[in-house]
Write a protein that binds this DNA or RNA. Structure first.
Lengths: 197, 197
DNA sequence: GCTTTAAGTCAACTTCTGTTGACTTTCAAG
DNA sequence: CTTGAAAGTCAACAGAAGTTGACTTAAAGC
């Protein structure tokens, strides 16, 4: 008597579905991606997409797992942190096969969704803010959050809204400027009163 | 022979609906706010909400009009720009009646929606980035965009995701740090090679 | 008092969503 | 050849959404 699992499908088709889902979730938000869209991409029935992962939310969760990025903080010093973060943000922007996206894209796309938002928040906290906090010294929550603000805001302007001012920028130049902005934020903890009125 | 307008309702109830809509759109995204929610708030029929504005999109447009903010750039110098922007972001955070929100909130909430996203992008460009560009000197698109990245990212972390690290910060302190971060970004144009490897 | 116009309601339609039960197909093991 | 589980399909449901046509109510204008 085998236990009949609710989740079916462990083979090649399942992987194809996951790949198609990654693509879709990088281009539209959780709520705007329909299981039927994904089903069409892979040319299977909607029901199969659903049952291969148990639920849409579970599928999304697995997509997020796919996008994990190791900041590699343990290996680098505080000085190199800014550069590393900027690098992550632009890592795939330099790639020639341009339908690749930076690891923040999928997270950022689905920020607003009530269903997916909670998952996104957790990932952001665990995968970025937490590690950054551990790396820097004083006023850490605020500084780590400001750093993330810059990264997330930039990703939004660039990929979501595709504002010309941002998309037309030379990536290498933008990367350098992001890095030095983060560097400045890192210095905040070390000054008592930055500029204050 | 009066022309029968598709849009009905010019009176007090219409204004109530608009107020309720503002509240709703500040708390949830365009797609997640239902006309039925708003109708319930004001205690009228859904159909009346719809017809008072012609369409949901038109209602949202009027809500955005409501949120217009004059940065007042003409009156201030480049030096005061950073402080002014930070002030806008925190203007209503200090208020005691706390169900008020900063003018970016509604824009940011509906970034992801395909329907509302276009509107949001236009507003952001016209109302913030454009004015900021006009105020600063060199490398203007990039610097203006970086500034907006910080503002938007912070708004998202604070209001959307409500990450503890951001919500627990003393507003006055955060405002000061945002301002000095923007100040640093403003200096980018004036240095040839910031730090570069 | 009748009429017109706006204010507001009611019920329904259409479209789209994730989900589910029941079915068929495939294919390897015994 | 038979069995049995996995792979995959089909049709349908239930819920929610924006929208629309037809209706009623209410208050002025003449």
């Amino acid at each position: 008597m085998r236990r009949k699992s609710v989740v079916r499908g462990e083979g090649a088709t399942r992987r194809e579905i996951l790949t198609a889902a990654i693509e879709r979730f990088a281009l539209a938000s959780y709520d705007d991606v329909g299981l039927r869209d994904i089903a069409t991409d892979v040319d299977v029935d909607v029901a199969y997409v659903h049952r291969s992962f148990g639920s849409k939310e579970q599928l999304f969760r697995e997509v997020l797992d796919t996008q994990r990025v190791d900041i590699g903080l343990s290996a680098i010093g505080e000085k190199a942190l800014a550069g590393r973060l900027a690098e992550i943000l632009f890592e795939r922007a330099h790639a020639r096969t341009s339908h690749e996206h930076d690891p923040l894209t999928i997270l950022v796309r689905s920020l607003a969704s009530p269903t997916a938002g909670r998952l996104v928040g957790e990932r952001l906290q665990d995968e970025y803010i937490e590690p950054i906090q551990q790396k820097i010294g004083e006023r850490t929550p605020l500084r780590a959050s400001m750093t993330m603000s810059l990264l997330i805001g930039f990703s939004i302007l660039r990929h979501h809204l595709q504002l010309p001012a941002v998309t037309e920028i030379d990536p290498a130049q933008a990367e350098a400027l992001i890095a030095s902005a983060i560097d400045e934020i890192m210095k905040f903890g070390k000054v008592e009163n930055p500029d204050q009125a």
